[in-house]
């Protein structure tokens, strides 16, 4: 159908124009990242003079040296890994059995439970009651609190439930006649059959945890518990007002901007490393969870 050789001149012209527009949008998407990378490798002086456009000016790795010796940076980096791995595992521990139970026709009150969960997608108590609740539960400034309180969300459960529901009933029945109980049906049949869906949810969880910032900022006070995103935020808002930093900066080849850029680069790299896997699954995933008849 789409064969270049069969295109009329007008169609060819149209296709070329579209290709150019897409190219421009793609470049525009990519450019800010390149620009930040260039700033991070430039000297503070060059950056502040607004000379950096595409490539590093007066190439230097001083900004990276500055961050990489900061213990707080490494602590927050480690914390982000803890939150990401711990949080994702916690999410799966809730979501997989929960979604399985909700997908079973024999579950009494299934409609009610599904509504009970879906309702939270439409109505949310909001920031303040959630915060006060966390305080009442003594989960303020708690790493475990962060891992637990954001473990589940209705969307992921519904996504996986839909996937489980689409598995033919006979798979479960055959396993049951073979003597499997529900835990065995889930573990030996449903989970292996749902690898793509579970991979999608795992990636959603990883990305959400890696990027999570607002509640970590609100709930965590101790410097040794904050994740990378909160550390980055502190750096963003404090660096330029920090007198001590301003003094060291005078003698160094970095500036608030190049240091910020360097932190951004450091925190994007892990995302870029897992991005190929993310990409493999999310297209499927977003459609799985989407509109259901």
């Amino acid at each position: 159908m789409m064969n270049w050789n069969l295109y009329s001149r007008g169609d060819k012209f149209f296709a070329i124009v579209v290709s150019i527009l897409i190219g421009m949008f793609t470049v525009a998407t990519l450019y800010p990242f390149i620009y930040i990378a260039a700033v991070s490798f430039s000297s503070g002086f060059a950056a502040q003079a607004g000379k950096v456009v595409l490539t590093p000016i007066d190439s230097t790795i001083e900004a990276y040296k500055y961050i990489l010796v900061q213990p707080d940076f490494w602590i927050s980096y480690r914390n982000t890994f803890i939150y990401t791995i711990g949080g994702t595992v916690m999410s799966l521990l809730f979501i997989i059995p929960g979604a399985y139970a909700l997908s079973r026709p024999q579950l009494f009150g299934r409609r009610f439970f599904n509504l009970f969960i879906a309702f939270t997608m439409w109505f949310n108590a909001g920031i303040i009651p959630f915060y006060l609740n966390m305080r009442d539960l003594s989960l303020l400034d708690s790493m475990f609190g962060i891992i637990l309180a954001f473990a589940v969300n209705a969307f992921n459960i519904i996504l996986l439930r839909n996937f489980f529901e689409a598995i033919p009933q006979s798979f479960e029945e055959a396993a049951r006649m073979d003597g499997a109980n529900d835990f065995q049906v889930l573990w030996k049949v449903f989970i292996p059959l749902s690898k793509p869906a579970i991979a999608t949810i795992t990636l959603f969880c990883i990305v959400a945890r890696w990027n999570g910032f607002f509640w970590a900022m609100v709930l965590l006070q101790s410097q040794e518990k904050i994740p990378l995103q909160v550390f980055l935020r502190h750096t963003l808002s404090n660096l330029s007002d920090d007198d001590e930093f301003a003094i060291t900066q005078l003698e160094a080849a970095y500036s608030a901007e190049t240091v910020t850029a360097a932190i951004i680069v450091c925190s994007i790299i892990p995302v870029l490393l897992v991005y190929p896997w993310i990409q493999k699954y999310f297209e499927k995933g977003i459609l799985l969870g989407g509109v259901k008849e």
Binding site: P168, S170, A174, V189, P192, L193, K195
Partner: peptide, 13 residues
């Protein structure tokens, strides 16, 4: 008892 299902219910994995 053992049952043979219409769609066989063979585990693909």
């Amino acid at each position: 008892v053992a049952m043979v299902f219409q769609n066989y219910a063979l585990y693909p994995h």
